[in-house]
Amino acid sequence: MTWQITKNFLLFLLILVGFILILLLPRERAITTSGPLQFDAHYPFSLELYLESIEEFVTYIKTEKGFGETRGGNPILDEVKRFMTRSLKIIVPAFIISMIVGSLLGLLQFYLRHRKCGKVLSFFSWVFASIPDFFLFIAIQYLLMRAGLPKFGLFGNEEWYSFIIPLISLTIFPLAHMIKVTVVAMENEMGQDYVRTVFSKGLNKVEAIKHMFWNCWSTMVNQSQMVMLYILSSLPIIEKISSYNGAGYQLLQSILNNEDIRALGLMLPFLILMFLVVVISQAIKNWYIPKEVRGGL
């Protein structure tokens, strides 16, 4: 257990270093004049330049003893904290809803799969698993505008409810993914002998599903990293089109503007979030899942 966490931590550090190395690849532009009102853009790209920028980065971190300040003069850490709290309001509910509601709906869909309403449910989960979140967001906006409903602000981050529409568009896809994973995991179990034993003892379908669930749920916990990754991948785009202005959007901007240090400062919380999800799901698996099942996976 301790070894596993240490191993994951080392992996996390390596990934962090790898990310910094990619971030520091030289991207500065040099412009030379080649005639009256005619300029050439050059992007010098050489090993020396790369080493130089790495060295610069190391000395910067050393002298500032941290991330230092933005171009505007605010401490980067304060800024990261501000944007991150804003984004966490979307990330955390999206993650929890997808994991818990997703698994429950998956169980329901499995339970009802031979009935008509089960088929309808599975069709809908298929539809939602195939709709890109940006389309969903735009569609919600279009519908609300058409309906003439909104007496409230659809965009921005000023109101307490501003996070709801981005949250919905961000949750649907991982939610549908979880439903799919749950159903597939349950279907893999349905041919096992112990299921027959459950019925031969005279227990009903609900009891059988309970048995199967405990054998499936390590597969489901395994998906937590995937779900988090989905959410973090789409977050910047959704934040951009909804003008939510959280950490994801700021990260995009800082990468596009070549602000290496700021990009790193904004990326770090996301990486830590991923790391936490990995470690916690590992811990849950170790504590709650029968050893026999764990051995089999």
Partner: peptide, 24 residues
């Protein structure tokens, strides 16, 4: 795969396509 299970694909693509040899 370990690397990409931490860093969203879209950020990776963005970081790489903005590199000078591909931009110019």
């Amino acid at each position: 795969n370990g690397f990409l299970s931490y860093i969203p694909t879209i950020l990776m693509v963005l970081l790489i396509v903005m590199l000078p040899p591909f931009l110019f």
